[in-house]
């Protein structure tokens, strides 16, 4: 049976992991490769690396980092953050990334999704959608969730699927950082309407939240950052818990 995926997300700046990372036994918590290897060994199903730097110089650092990650890590990983062009995508995929994720650039130029899907295949095109509830409506936001657009979240999700996205990474800005649970109603609505997988993101605070997003939220995968980085939830425990709740998960032998 196809299992539900657990995906830790690592924020990268200038080739280093940012946000406080508190891993027992990890000498250099700022080294994304070491951290990624640890997550892979713990049974993470995929990894997402989000580059929060922007300059061209630092982009080159990212490509070098992606090569190191690809050489080391034996599970799939996605790279996102500031990707604008075919050239950006091509260099990251050639460096060994399995998927790339685009966000603001897709909103600005939706045709980019079609181009990337036909050039590299839908399977590697993840469209990240940052959503916020504004005046009774779910609205797509860009620039790290700060700037609202005119797009309704569900309409945009349907459009990106039609344009060839292979997967949606749905982050609720209302839930992100609250540790009060994922945006399950919206996630379920989108997941049921779409035929491509949906990754729920934003709001994970405890193990029950993951259970709920797989059950009520109908998510195909769940992504979280700080609760994993700070060791508040350990992936092996989370997976065992989900298994006892009859959620299909992969337990690494």
């Amino acid at each position: 049976m196809l299992t539900k995926r657990i995906i830790p997300c690592l924020d990268i700046k200038e080739g280093r992991t940012v946000k406080g990372v508190n891993f027992v036994g990890l000498r250099d918590a700022g080294d994304p490769v070491a951290l990624a290897a640890q997550y892979a060994a713990q049974g993470a199903d995929e990894l997402v690396f989000l580059d929060i730097t922007a300059t061209v110089e630092e982009r080159k650092t990212l490509v070098e980092l992606v090569k190191k990650i690809a050489a080391e890590i034996n599970i799939p990983f996605t790279v996102g953050g500031g990707i604008q062009s075919i050239a950006d995508v091509s260099s990251l995929l050639n460096a060994g990334a399995d998927k790339i994720s685009i966000n603001s650039a897709a909103v600005k130029n939706p045709e980019l999704i079609n181009t990337l899907a036909s050039e590299f295949g839908s399977q590697c095109v993840v469209v990240a959608i940052d959503t916020r509830f504004v005046k009774g409506k779910h609205i797509v936001h860009v620039r790290g969730g700060r700037t609202p657009t005119a797009l309704r979240t569900i309409c945009w999700a349907l459009e990106v699927q039609k344009r060839g996205a292979g997967e949606i990474l749905l982050t609720s800005m209302d839930h992100d950082g609250t540790k009060a649970g994922f945006a399950n109603a919206l996630t379920a609505q989108i997941s049921e309407k779409l035929s491509i997988p949906v990754i729920a993101s934003g709001g994970a605070g405890n193990m029950e939240h993951f259970l709920h997003t797989f059950q009520a939220g109908k998510a195909d995968a769940a992504l979280a950052a700080s609760i994993f980085h700070f060791g508040e939830i350990k992936i092996p425990e989370l997976k065992h818990y989900l298994k006892t709740q009859n959620i299909p998960v992969r337990i690494e032998p």
């Binding site: 049976m1 196809l2 299992t3 539900k4 995926r5 199903d45 839908s122 399977q123 292979g166 997967e167 779409l194 035929s195 491509i196 997988p197 195909d220 995968a221 992969r250």
Partner: peptide, 10 residues
């Protein structure tokens, strides 16, 4: 179900 099949299966 969702297509593509994406993820880990037995």
């Amino acid at each position: 179900l969702k297509v593509p099949q994406m993820g880990w299966n037995t």
